[in-house]
């Protein structure tokens, strides 16, 4: 079937099998290999992307539901001003080791910080990131990086602005 979808601000017209996974479209058809496959069952969160502004496991989204959709992968966050500080917070806290889960964690981070309700407690972060699994860090450093980001007002403001630019400006 032919579908049109927008990935990282660029429209793609593609011919795909209706039941093909969004994850395979991104990685194999469009070469956005930042998005990773871990479990393929919606448990590990390595394939997390933003679909129409909401984070989802791209391994559990079929092509036939994608017509006209907007997808943001970790590559697309390079357009966001807030990406650099997020990257820096993860690196400085030692929150990235093998790096496999990192793209999923970054997508969840922007989604969480966009929706966050203050105050951000460790419990809230743990709940929000329950769907992202990391096998290296033991999580402590990841949680520290996210907490650090959540506590900075200019980061939160920047996310709101980047989000607006991404999803509202082009309608």
């Amino acid at each position: 079937m032919k579908i049109v979808l927008i990935v990282n601000r660029k429209p793609y017209k593609i011919n795909v099998e209706p039941k093909r996974r969004l994850l395979d479209i991104l990685r194999d058809d469009l070469n956005f290999i930042g998005t990773k496959e871990g479990c393929g069952k919606g448990e590990c969160g390595a394939c997390t992307v933003l679909l129409n502004g909401r984070r989802v496991n791209s391994c559990l989204v079929p092509a036939f539901q994608l017509e006209g959709s907007t997808v943001i992968t970790v590559e697309g966050l390079r357009n966001w001003k807030v990406f650099k500080p997020i990257e820096r917070a993860f690196i400085e806290n030692g929150a990235v080791q093998c790096g496999f889960c990192f793209p999923g964690f970054v997508i969840s981070t922007v989604s969480f910080l966009k929706e966050k309700s203050s105050p951000v407690t460790l419990d809230k972060i743990k709940t929000a990131f329950g769907g992202n699994i990391c096998r290296c860090t033991g999580y402590t450093k990841i949680l520290a990086a996210i907490q650090e980001l959540a506590d900075q007002k200019d980061i939160i403001d920047q996310i709101q602005e980047d989000w607006k630019n991404e999803f509202n400006a082009r309608k």
Partner: peptide, 12 residues
């Protein structure tokens, strides 16, 4: 419902 899967799952 908040205890179903993860937020990624709850969005779908």
């Amino acid at each position: 419902l908040q205890q179903v899967g993860s937020e990624q799952i709850q969005n779908r």
